[in-house]
Amino acid sequence: MKIKFYLNKKEIEIEVDPTIRLIDLLREKLNLTGTKEGCSIGECGACTVIVDGKAINSCLMLAYQVDGCNVITIEGISEDGKLHPLQENFLKTGAIQCGFCTPGMIMSAYALLLENPNPTEEEIKDAIAGNLCRCTGYKQIIDAIEVSAKELKG
């Protein structure tokens, strides 16, 4: 099946087997290995990417379903080699330990800030409740998102 979609702001056209998952298209076919797989059943959020502005689990979506959509992955949020404020603040607040949850976590935060530039702490927690992190205890991640929201508002 031939599909056409925007991936990290570039339009691509590709032939996909309709029964593979989006995560496999990204990781195996397109070599975008920033998106991680931790559980394959929609529980850990490591595979989170953004499809048409919404955070979704790429392990629970079929690849062809992004036909005509706008997909953003961790590889696509920094511009001209400049880190996105979320990336910058994840670094600064110590939001990263092993880093395996980080791409998914940043994508969930990115989707949150798209929709809600002024999130409360509770709203941030709700947005990342589907992203498990075993290392950080979440605190510094929440801080990073809070600071980024402030910076993005300018």
Partner: peptide, 20 residues
């Protein structure tokens, strides 16, 4: 407070884990 040496790769998705 010092930023981890490996953090840059981890926020950009470049860090290579075994399955990558």
């Amino acid at each position: 407070s010092v930023i981890r040496e490996d953090a840059f790769d981890k926020v950009t998705g470049k860090a290579k884990f075994a399955d990558d």
